[in-house]
Design a protein around this nucleic acid. Structure first.
Lengths: 358, 358
DNA sequence: TGTTCTTGTGAGACCGGTCTCAATTGCGAA
DNA sequence: TTCGCAATTGAGACCGGTCTCACAAGAACA
């Protein structure tokens, strides 16, 4: 470990010396606190300019205890959903003069824990997290600084949270499918669930996932479809095995005639898999996905989507968190933003040649 | 400005007191430097665990002068090109135990300057920047810490740089178009250029933009196409006016029969505009774009793309920068990564009904 | 004119680490 | 037995800011 050359930077003391005042006075001018007479102020300011003084934020943070930055931990930056939400957060933060330190969890709890530890060690003033898993949230409960949850609520964690009305969205989307006759409808999500689904509703603590599933199941029930739980497929992330799983699903004898995808990344993978299997949308299979990703409107056919106000989602959590950083004492808020369904061309009626068995 | 409650955190001194050793000794154990006897080490470690000690990175950075984090300034996080590159950077950084602080410039120099100022004040150990503009780079020259350039080289700035062989890529892609007979070929980029192009090659200092244009022009020249400069269109970013510009281009009497797009965001916008005009790819117009964005393979027709090793791009700059942080003294490197063209279905021969005039 | 406020300024402690330096101890070599 | 050296430890300076407190000087008041 080699000692860095350590470019000696200009400090308050240097400026003070140059301006022929005490360090305390120079600090007052430079830090913008306390009272200083006009002539002294200008003298210090000139000295600072002459020396090209730049404050060391680290030192400042050390004494104030405030770092002026917030940490954001998302599942996957590459997912356009998150990039857009992050932009919402950044935009709001910038307006408040707050920096954003971004970390990727890759949807893995361990990475999430480590990221949070690091951010906390860096003394972030607050955290925005998209919890990767719902079962393992001890590390979130321990967080001492203000915390806000993005997109995924945790019932056990009473903190500021912004989500969308996932349940209702899934309900409406699924209804859209049942209403045109579909009975074998699959819900495909990237979320992972240990074990298989049957009656495991209670094990899914992540609101987003659970609510969507509940909405999905409710619509199925309404339509008199039984055993819909069997058509919920977890773990369809970015991986070879996930793609293989999709192919298997699409090639099975009782393959679904309609699919609801949990996000645009999954949907794109599905779209490719469907092509690979020589199936046609919407003739052979219908598709609806969460998130109006930009590409969904240019495919053939364009995809019907559940449009989430993603940018607003990011904007809102950031606002909530920043308000709290300013010392707002009101109880945690849980904001649920509405979604709309953008109907395009990927939903067709149930293919008649495929008799339903369930 | 309200004083934050300031949760009193556990410090080295607290641990020292608990372990009944001096602060210096506790610090040695906790900081992992110097020599400590085994019994003392365990005593300190136990005390630390009992007290749940967490080091304050800020304080540590203050004395060491190293913050353990690097700053990354990109044009637009939402552009999948950048998100992927950023992941490349993050992955490498994580392996070295270095954090990444991300900032968005929105491709605006002022925002870029401000972001760099903030990151520097936060004492980042190094910076990775994708310079938004090439003319205004004074702020980059002034940077005292190690700096590395991503995707865009600046001839005047002799620092570690990783780019792709833009010129050759543009050359090959354009050739692919000229070879099937196209003569009215447009190059559309999001980059902005003050004034219009004519002979302004010298004004474009951003390597990516200049090299691509040079490659494009070279291919045109080879094919005996004159005045190709007129077919270079700048400023096609994310905006209403940009889209309007594209529509105008596509509706003009001498509209291009083939287009080369500078990135996938521009390409998507183009794709939509082409549809809007009722044109068909590749019958009426051919399209090639830089960046193998995930959606390019699912459109109808799928788009022929110039596949850049984006992840590797990010990975390489990060490696270069980190090597330099470790005190590597060798002269700055300029790495140029190769690209490949993935041929899909968006290139067709020149539509015969459109006579070329140029 | 004496007293009490203001206001401006300087001295120095402090934040939580790192790191230098000197002091103490134990042990093998002479 | 004495000396030298290495290993271990403690005291305290330091990083670059913030902030408390004491004090001096002029203003306001009696």
């Amino acid at each position: 470990m080699k000692r860095s050359p350590k470019v000696p930077s200009i400090t308050v003391s240097d400026v003070a010396r140059e301006a022929k005042v005490s360090k305390a006075t120079a600090a007052r001018v430079l830090g913008g606190y306390g009272t200083v007479s006009e002539p002294v102020r200008t003298a210090v300011l000139e000295a600072a300019k002459a020396l090209d003084y730049r404050p060391n934020e680290l030192a400042r943070s050390m004494t104030t205890g405030r770092s002026g930055s917030i940490g954001v931990v998302v599942g996957d930056i590459e997912n356009p959903f998150f990039s857009l939400a992050v932009r919402g957060i950044s935009d709001v933060a910038r307006l408040s003069g707050i920096n954003v330190i971004l970390a990727n969890s890759g949807e893995e709890v361990e990475a999430e824990k480590s990221a949070i530890r690091v951010l906390l060690a860096k003394q972030v003033d607050g955290l925005i997290v998209t919890p990767a898993q719902s079962g393992d949230i001890g590390h979130l409960k321990e967080i001492a600084c203000p915390l806000a949850l993005l997109d995924r609520a945790l019932p056990e964690l009473d903190v500021d949270t912004v989500t969308v009305d996932d349940r209702n969205a899934a309900l409406r989307a699924t209804r859209m499918l049942t209403q045109v006759g579909h009975r074998r409808i699959a819900y495909v999500t990237a979320a992972v669930l240990s074990g298989d689904f049957r009656g495991a509703e209670s094990r899914i603590n992540t609101s987003t996932v659970r609510e969507r599933i509940l909405g999905f199941l409710e619509a199925c029930r309404e339509a008199g479809i039984e055993g819909a739980e069997r058509n919920i497929h977890f773990g369809s992330g970015r991986s070879e095995s996930a793609h293989a799983m999709l192919l298997q699903l699409l090639r099975s004898a009782d393959r679904p005639t309609a699919i609801l995808a949990s996000d645009s990344v999954v949907a794109l993978d599905l779209f490719k898999a469907i092509r690979e299997c020589g199936l046609s949308i919407p003739r052979d299979i219908s598709l609806i996905t969460f998130h109006d990703a930009d590409w969904t409107s240019v495919t053939t056919p364009p995809i019907t989507v559940i449009d989430q106000p993603v940018y607003a989602l990011g904007k809102s959590v950031a606002e909530l968190l920043i308000r709290r950083l300013k010392g707002d004492g009101r109880p945690p808020e849980r904001i649920v933003l509405p979604t709309t369904i953008i109907e395009r061309m990927s939903v067709g009626s149930r293919p008649s040649q495929l008799a339903d068995r369930s």
